Amino acid sequence: MARRKKIYEGKAKVLYEGPEPGTLVQYFKDDATAFNAEKKDVIDGKGVLNNRLSEFFMTGLMNIGVPTHFIKRLNMREQLVRQVEIIPLEVIVRNFAAGSISKRLGLEEGTPLPRPIVEYSYKDDALGDPLVPEEYIIAFGWASQQDLDDIVALALRVNDFMSGVMHGVGIKLVDFKIEIGRIWDNDFMRLVVADEISPDSCRLWDVETGKKLDKDVFRRDLGNLTDAYTEVARRLGVLPANSAHPKPTLIN
């Protein structure tokens, strides 16, 4: 597929104009960032893995009736997606204490939470993506109360699906974040899961050992990030059990 006009470039992906109106090509980079991009590196093959894993999760969600922006994978690094209006929030679902909630509340990492907790952070790198309450979201017009009700319902359905899939391959879904976008069909607006779902946006721990299989490997210098992501892909059947690291190639 010929390269088209660049629409947007983020820390981990690039969006290009799609082949048809209302579509985009989402390209997965090998760049890894942490601590609001204070820590950076290029991890060979990371983009290939995240492309395949996000395809796996988005397709699974659509199969159970959860709407997403995903249309199809184009090659090893690119997906065709529907163009959406992104709501400027990161929607965080937590099943166990880890990361910032452990620091804020003094909870030991790994502590089971009484129920899945949904939090929101305002998408602004310059501000460090601060946590915001629903009152702020409604007051500033980022989303309506009905939107938030629908977002929580979507997030919890994603959590049910992801938790079950991961548990089936011996992985604990500690937490994850998603983005939600608006799509209009004529005058009808609906909310869909957008961006990506991958080990970049989840905390994944081995059920038996507690070994981290997510971006905390990079954040905390715990080993090779590609090895961790490859292990997730192998367990889910996205890669053959005996495959080597995927190389950064654009072939199908």
Results as ranks from 00 to 15, higher is better:
residue 142 W to N: 13
residue 56 F to P: 01
residue 59 T to K: 14
residue 118 V to W: 03
residue 204 L to V: 02
residue 12 A to M: 00
residue 220 R to M: 11
residue 195 D to V: 02
residue 23 T to N: 01
residue 157 R to V: 08
residue 46 K to T: 02
residue 216 D to W: 02
residue 36 N to D: 15
residue 174 V to G: 01
residue 11 K to P: 05
residue 104 R to S: 09
residue 121 S to R: 14
residue 154 L to N: 07
residue 75 N to P: 02
residue 68 T to L: 02
residue 105 L to S: 11
residue 30 D to E: 03
residue 161 F to D: 03
residue 105 L to V: 10
residue 51 N to I: 07
residue 56 F to C: 04
residue 195 D to T: 04
residue 6 K to E: 15
residue 67 P to T: 01
residue 171 I to L: 14
residue 26 Q to E: 15
residue 73 R to E: 09
residue 220 R to G: 00
residue 197 I to S: 08
residue 62 M to G: 07
residue 40 K to P: 06
residue 102 S to D: 08
residue 83 Q to S: 13
residue 40 K to W: 05
residue 205 W to M: 02
residue 223 G to T: 11
residue 27 Y to H: 15
residue 101 I to E: 09
residue 183 I to K: 09
residue 59 T to E: 14
residue 157 R to M: 08
residue 74 L to D: 07
residue 206 D to H: 08
residue 228 A to E: 00
residue 99 G to I: 03
residue 74 L to S: 06
residue 201 S to T: 14
residue 181 G to M: 11
residue 87 I to F: 12
residue 206 D to L: 01
residue 51 N to R: 04
residue 232 V to F: 07
residue 88 P to V: 10
residue 33 T to Y: 00
residue 234 R to L: 05
residue 73 R to T: 13
residue 127 L to A: 15
residue 239 L to G: 01
residue 126 A to I: 10
residue 166 M to K: 04
residue 151 I to D: 05
residue 229 Y to W: 10
residue 46 K to F: 01
residue 78 E to D: 12
residue 189 M to H: 05
residue 246 P to L: 10
residue 41 D to V: 06
residue 208 E to F: 04
residue 252 N to C: 13
residue 233 A to W: 00
residue 35 F to M: 11
residue 81 V to S: 00
residue 3 R to E: 13
residue 92 I to G: 08
residue 67 P to F: 03
residue 208 E to S: 12
residue 199 P to E: 01
residue 184 W to R: 15
residue 151 I to C: 04
residue 61 L to Q: 04
residue 137 I to T: 01
residue 226 T to M: 04
residue 234 R to N: 06
residue 132 V to Q: 04
residue 197 I to Q: 03
residue 89 L to W: 07
residue 5 K to P: 07
residue 84 V to M: 05
residue 85 E to A: 13
residue 252 N to S: 14
residue 120 Y to Q: 09
residue 84 V to N: 02
residue 207 V to Q: 15
residue 154 L to R: 03
residue 162 M to P: 00
residue 248 P to F: 12
residue 180 I to P: 11
residue 219 R to M: 03
residue 192 V to S: 05
residue 68 T to R: 02
residue 175 D to V: 08
residue 124 D to K: 13
residue 25 V to H: 01
residue 231 E to I: 08
residue 232 V to T: 08
residue 101 I to F: 07
residue 162 M to W: 00
residue 221 D to G: 08
residue 71 I to Q: 03
residue 74 L to A: 05
residue 146 Q to S: 14
residue 107 L to T: 12
residue 215 K to I: 02
residue 47 G to E: 04
residue 132 V to L: 05
residue 96 F to R: 15
residue 190 R to D: 12
residue 211 K to P: 04
residue 227 D to K: 12
residue 20 E to L: 12
residue 88 P to G: 09
residue 203 R to G: 05
residue 225 L to E: 06
residue 197 I to F: 13
residue 46 K to R: 03
residue 245 H to T: 07
residue 233 A to I: 00
residue 191 L to S: 07
residue 238 V to Y: 00
residue 108 E to T: 12
residue 113 L to D: 12
residue 90 E to H: 03
residue 193 V to D: 10
residue 250 L to C: 06
residue 150 D to E: 15
residue 208 E to L: 11
residue 32 A to H: 02
residue 172 K to H: 08
residue 96 F to K: 14
residue 133 P to C: 10
residue 168 G to Q: 12
residue 163 S to K: 14
residue 163 S to G: 12
residue 192 V to A: 11
residue 42 V to T: 15
residue 23 T to E: 04
residue 206 D to E: 11
residue 174 V to P: 02
residue 66 V to T: 03
